[in-house]
Design a protein around this nucleic acid. Sequence first.
DNA 1: CATGAATGAGAGTTCATTCAT
DNA 2: TATGAATGAACTCTCATTCAT
Lengths: 203, 203, 203, 203
Amino acid sequence: MPGKRAETKARNRSVILDAAGRVFAERGFVAATVRDVIRATPLAAGTFYKYFRSKEEVLRALRDSAALSLRPALRAARQDAATPEAFFAAAFRTFFAYAAANPGPFAAVRRSDASHVPVDAPELAACFTDLREDIESAVARGVFPPLDCEYLASAMQGVGFELAEAMLKRKPCDPNAATTYATAIFMSGAIVEARSKAAGEAH
Amino acid sequence: MPGKRAETKARNRSVILDAAGRVFAERGFVAATVRDVIRATPLAAGTFYKYFRSKEEVLRALRDSAALSLRPALRAARQDAATPEAFFAAAFRTFFAYAAANPGPFAAVRRSDASHVPVDAPELAACFTDLREDIESAVARGVFPPLDCEYLASAMQGVGFELAEAMLKRKPCDPNAATTYATAIFMSGAIVEARSKAAGEAH
Amino acid sequence: MPGKRAETKARNRSVILDAAGRVFAERGFVAATVRDVIRATPLAAGTFYKYFRSKEEVLRALRDSAALSLRPALRAARQDAATPEAFFAAAFRTFFAYAAANPGPFAAVRRSDASHVPVDAPELAACFTDLREDIESAVARGVFPPLDCEYLASAMQGVGFELAEAMLKRKPCDPNAATTYATAIFMSGAIVEARSKAAGEAH
Amino acid sequence: MPGKRAETKARNRSVILDAAGRVFAERGFVAATVRDVIRATPLAAGTFYKYFRSKEEVLRALRDSAALSLRPALRAARQDAATPEAFFAAAFRTFFAYAAANPGPFAAVRRSDASHVPVDAPELAACFTDLREDIESAVARGVFPPLDCEYLASAMQGVGFELAEAMLKRKPCDPNAATTYATAIFMSGAIVEARSKAAGEAH
DNA sequence: CATGAATGAGAGTTCATTCAT
DNA sequence: TATGAATGAACTCTCATTCAT
């Protein structure tokens, strides 16, 4: 039995976290104020500070929770990959699935990544470092030929975030299609893919 | 002879614009304050308002100047392209060259694009719309096979910005290499490229 | 038991209102700054804005409270008057009594009336309109002979405010004497009055 | 021959003074800024300070010029009066004629009188002191019976300013009528006057 | 523990005034 | 002498944070 106190505490914490996710996504982390977050909540101003010391700490928590579910999944998916295609497909599938399932935190995290936010717990930044390391390790394992790991990581990150944003705008939102598209870009080029698809449709 | 007054005026305007470029790039547009911009300047607080009505107007000016030099160049380069390779190469070459030559404005513009910035002169947003239109027109002209124009535009944008950022961190900064890399991604896939390069080196 | 919080809130509101009354009276509404009002208070800068949105809103509140107690009293007094003397005496008595009892708000209101103050709730201006209407209605009721209602209203207003100011400077401040004086001016002329008084004293 | 320099100087001075008269009348002295005055002028900001040290000094000059033409005229008119009626008529006639001929300066002076303006050369205040002294002297000369000089001065001032304002709003603006009205108030009362006039018209 | 009023530092902006041209 | 850009003090208002209730 967790006790009523503890229950309320946990609920309040996630009430704030949810509200922050929405507010940060809407206005951007830097422009959002603690007041905005509180106003998106039935709680009072002072209550915020019982749970978080500052706006930054909320973002940290939000990121941590994103990293908590996303980071290990990404690592695992990539490290199991035996072929380049498997590598790309696994990485993008995991990422797009997360974005589709958690649009609020995703947007919050995306925004704060692009701005220079003085948050000292770069859990999400670690995801990018991970990506690069996984590429390096894939090269070492012979999955990839020698290549410019940094540029590849950057390119994948760029494609991932931008395509995720485009994907979220479409109704219905289709992570599988986005994954196929992103993978194709990195496997055989956008053009080749489109050409073969066009040929297939011509039959 | 332009007179010392006119000279000073023109110089001050670009002093502020330069400082704003640096400050916005460093702290992000939303977090940056007019005072930050002034402090990055030998000028006094009130002087800012002789030249710009607000922080937003400076960003607008910065964007306009970016759009002014970048947008027509991008359009021209892409519209002249007769092959997919020419299209990608032209687009990325123009973009990376601009980023390399104007790192301050580029970073400012990159940041403000990612944040929710209430600036009503979306000159830069127009660049992205342009890209999509140019892809559509390339499809219509037969340069590209039928493909998902929106996703391709998003992917190019993502690769462009991320690779530009990675490129700017390298010493020496090499826009040509970045262009080659980005083009290769979209032409024949990162892997194919790397594989053939590796094979070449093996000779 | 109203609770200490509610008490403090009500007290703070009138603390600000009182201070504003004094400050507006001293420096005039336009010249007075919100800071001046705050400085005349033990409260902090931000606290002002918990209670009033702007300097104008404070003046509005001050006026409203003046109008609230003054306007209906003036109307009633004048509308009951069956003779010209009763009309003048009632109007001036009510007005001077208010000024004597509320010198701060009176001065604030007097100042802001004379200045060009962009306050859109002209509760006090309504008092002057009232006066004219009451004169017109008195003419219609046969209390007054036909006369220039606008000029009479202006003259009464001028005498009222100036005499009130003069009255407030005297120690002791005597609203009854001022009323008698003002009424005499409008009833039988200053001179006639003084002459008969002088005659009376000569006895 | 005054020389071109001196001419220009005199012209600039009155250009500023005229503009200030208009601006102070429009916005009120306290709300008006030196910038407003300059903008109402073809001159440049710095030029203002060649002629006046501050906004206050301009008001002082404006008042001085009002006092210069008004004060001696008022004194003379009142000191020559042999009867109460002559006293009132002369005072009001002079005052209303000035207001009608110089609406700008009049309004400026009226506004600044009502506001608490920290101007240390109270040339206009002197006019009011004059009025009281003239009443006292009229009492001493036997023109008036013993009366409350201060209250009478206040009442006259109130009627004078308010009636002048009402008069200026009427088209055509008729100083003679206003003078007759104001004099009647102080001579035999508004009512008596109106009653006899009504009787006259009934014939 | 929750509340929300109070705090005060700091942001954006204006404007009287100076001074190089 | 006239100019008008530069200055910087001061103002309005917001918001993260504290603390009595």
